[in-house]
Design a binder for these strands. Structure first.
Lengths: 213, 213
DNA sequence: GTCTATAGCTGGATAGAC
DNA sequence: GTCTATCCAGCTATAGAC
């Protein structure tokens, strides 16, 4: 028992040290870009030396993976917060606004999570899982708005992703595309709900597979 | 006279050598990614040595600039080809399809031209100019469809860019988002033309034919 | 202009003492 | 686990002979 608590304590210390290294990595990534920091920089920033970093991570890619996992968890939590609105339509709007805000509020996090910007790096399935789960919610919210065709889901990701991308690339920190989010979703809903009218009533029973024509 | 022709000849030879270096750079960029090739690789591929590269370009960034300039010129020419369709509406569709095809047919070219993926690199104004000119055409084509609000232009760039980006990231070489392009533009036109009906002096009908004159 | 040779630096990762 | 010291590979860029 004493043994197990000691071991748990050590494990907690270890996790804490890992997290402080990952935090330092995020600081550097935000200052100099996701790719432009070195393990030397990182060690200095974290107040340790390079070999010590290797006591906690096997490689630089392992650090990216930890960063990805942290970002994915943040994303899942951010999107899963309670929706204090009534109606599936308003819920969709809140979902999209949230997604937009999450992405634009931290460009490097967005790049690591949703762009494929680090050469040779692919997140492990464990790190990737929360992100997949959170993205699946979009399909559910759309389904509750009577939208279940695969093509319309793809259209939504393109539209929302396009708004985010333009905002980040061409007006970082501004609102030029942010203020178009609601209008874009109204446009989208008007189109898809007209197009899919009659195929599925409102919620619950929507068909989600095979609809392709 | 002999002197001037000789000098022009030499200049042509020099330009030719520059182009073959840039071509080799594109080959490598497409094989290993925009960032993952070195001047050594490039020299080997071009059949010369590293110092010889420096006889034609001052730095690696100068090579990126030449690549950017070439891509921008290709883009301008690709988009400026004659539009063998009648009506401003069809013209817009052709424009967008062309843009989509140009971007998705060469991912590295797209990344260099429209993403900001090379650290520390900004294209010179001369290299950038053709791209700006070609992009301005979108505004004109939209205006001929009765769409002139700034926000609606931004909405178009977000929508089109989003489709391109999703296609490249999530279904490279496929058609999953390509086949949504026309539908997306119909959705867009239905929204914007309704929204701007009456505001715009150029067009007030939803479906214009031959407004270009 | 083209080469050989190399400077000068930075990167990720390791050995081994403590 | 943490350090000092270092390895080794890669990079851009340059010097200087021809």
């Amino acid at each position: 028992m004493t043994k197990s608590t000691t071991s748990a304590w050590r494990e907690a210390r270890r996790q804490s040290a890992r997290e402080s290294i990952v935090d330092a990595a995020w600081d550097l990534a935000r200052e100099e870009g996701l790719l432009m920091w070195s393990l030397r920089d990182l060690a200095t920033r974290a107040g340790i030396t390079t070999p010590t970093v290797y006591a906690y991570f096997d490689s630089k890619h392992a650090i990216y993976d930890a960063m990805f996992g942290q970002a994915a968890t943040d994303f899942a939590e951010y999107m899963a917060r309670p929706y204090d609105v009534e109606g599936s339509r308003e819920q969709l709007f809140v979902y999209v606004r949230r997604f937009f805000d999450f992405c634009t509020s931290d460009v490097e996090r967005y790049q690591l999570l949703f762009q494929r910007t680090i050469p040779g790096f692919t997140p492990t399935p464990e790190a990737y899982a929360p992100s997949v789960r959170a993205l699946r919610t979009l399909g559910q919210v759309l389904a509750e708005n009577g939208i279940s065709e695969e093509g319309h889901l793809d259209l939504a990701t393109a539209l929302i992703g396009g708004l985010v991308s333009q905002q980040i690339s061409n007006d970082p920190g501004g609102v030029r595309w942010m203020r178009l989010v609601d209008e874009a979703m109204e446009m989208y809903l008007a189109h898809c709900q007209t197009s899919e009218a009659g195929h599925s009533p409102t919620s619950r029973s929507g068909r989600t597979t095979g609809a392709r024509g």
